[in-house]
């Protein structure tokens, strides 16, 4: 359990200027090293001693990880591109607006000026038991302090509970899943490309991490294919305050319509489970249906099938249902 809080621990700092040099460093230091993007998830975790890396590898000096490139009607976004840059990018705004809105809904202006897309999708959970240093499952212990009769768990999961009830709090993650984005991951062993949907892990697969990133892995870019360019998009985020607060529930929708009929759709909800939840069943049920109140009602009910609310987060069930209804109804 963390005892020292509010001051930064000491660490060695590496500032490579190429991906190869960064890979060599994280390969050499293994689990003792931690990657530093904008640092807005990392510094809190360091100050609370949730993680205690011997070395930080700062990616800020690597030009090849920066910026947004057009590739075949889609985009390749360097992992170190800031959320502010994504939110104001003309093509992201005009063709992939769901991502622009999601990036623009993160934290505060200063957080978006510094926080990166790579860091936003790779961030850890904000479960405060875990983030306060309690030795829970996620921290290698054998209990979940957020799932006891007296636990304060208003922000926690309602789906796929498996010992740990923490949620993935990212705003951009559901947008990227909705866009069928691909994550480009490199390590000293080579490059692999993973669908955004498969980038995130639930506790059933690995209770100690939120993504497939292993020690030695670097997320170099996020590819947004042309598939959904110019589709009908929606992004909604419900939170306590308009600034700073993480989503209680957020939802990203991409939809292709013709003659009032939903031809294809992606519906992805986050902050309700340990990973962004793509609503496959709902998507299948509404494909080919008119975009009307009846379809919306059906979608809303299907979306909450199997929900297992905790003591203080029953509201998330109604919220999820209503957000899905609204996404369909428009």
């Amino acid at each position: 359990m963390a005892v020292i809080r509010g001051s930064m621990p000491s660490f060695e700092l590496f500032q490579p200027t190429s991906v190869d040099a960064a890979l060599a460093l994280i390969g050499r230091h293994g689990a003792a090293a931690r990657i530093l993007g904008g640092g807005l998830d990392t510094f809190d975790a360091l100050q609370d001693r949730v993680v205690q890396p011997a070395a930080l590898v700062d990616l800020g000096g690597i030009a090849e990880l920066q910026g947004i490139r057009e590739v075949g009607g889609g985009l390749e976004i360097g992992a170190m591109t800031t959320l502010a840059e994504i939110a104001r990018h003309p093509i992201v705004q005009s063709q992939f607006a769901v991502l622009a809105r999601a990036a623009g809904a993160v934290g505060s202006p200063q957080i978006r000026n510094q926080g990166t897309l790579g860091g936003n999708v790779s961030q850890s959970t904000r479960c405060w038991y875990y983030r306060s240093g309690w030795t829970c499952y996620r921290a290698g212990g054998n209990s979940c302090f957020a799932d006891t009769p007296t636990a304060v768990n208003r922000e926690h999961a309602i789906f796929d509970l498996d010992r740990c009830v923490a949620v993935n709090p990212s705003d951009t993650a559901p947008a990227l899943v909705a866009l069928d984005a691909q994550m480009v991951v490199r390590s000293s062993r080579g490059e692999r490309v993973v669908a955004a949907e498969d980038y995130f892990l639930g506790p059933d697969i690995d209770i100690t991490r939120m993504t497939i990133l292993d020690a030695g892995d670097l997320l170099t870019a996020i590819r947004v294919p042309a598939t959904w360019a110019g589709a009908h998009f929606q992004f909604e985020k419900v939170r306590d305050r308009k600034v700073w607060d993480f989503p209680l529930v957020n939802i990203a929708t991409a939809m292709k319509m013709s003659n009032g009929i939903i031809r294809d759709i992606r519906l992805v909800v986050n902050a309700v489970a340990a990973r962004p939840r793509r609503l496959h069943e709902v998507e299948n049920a509404v494909r080919g249906k008119p975009r009307d109140a009846a379809t919306a009602t059906l979608a809303g009910e299907l979306a909450i099938k199997g929900a297992q609310p905790l003591r203080h987060n029953t509201y998330k069930v109604a919220l999820t249902r209503n957000l899905v209804q609204r996404a369909i109804r428009g």
Partner: peptide, 13 residues
């Protein structure tokens, strides 16, 4: 020229 929280930036970066 871009606003940042200086409490959350490493001086070395």
């Amino acid at each position: 020229a871009v606003p940042h929280y200086s409490c959350s930036v490493l001086t070395h970066s």
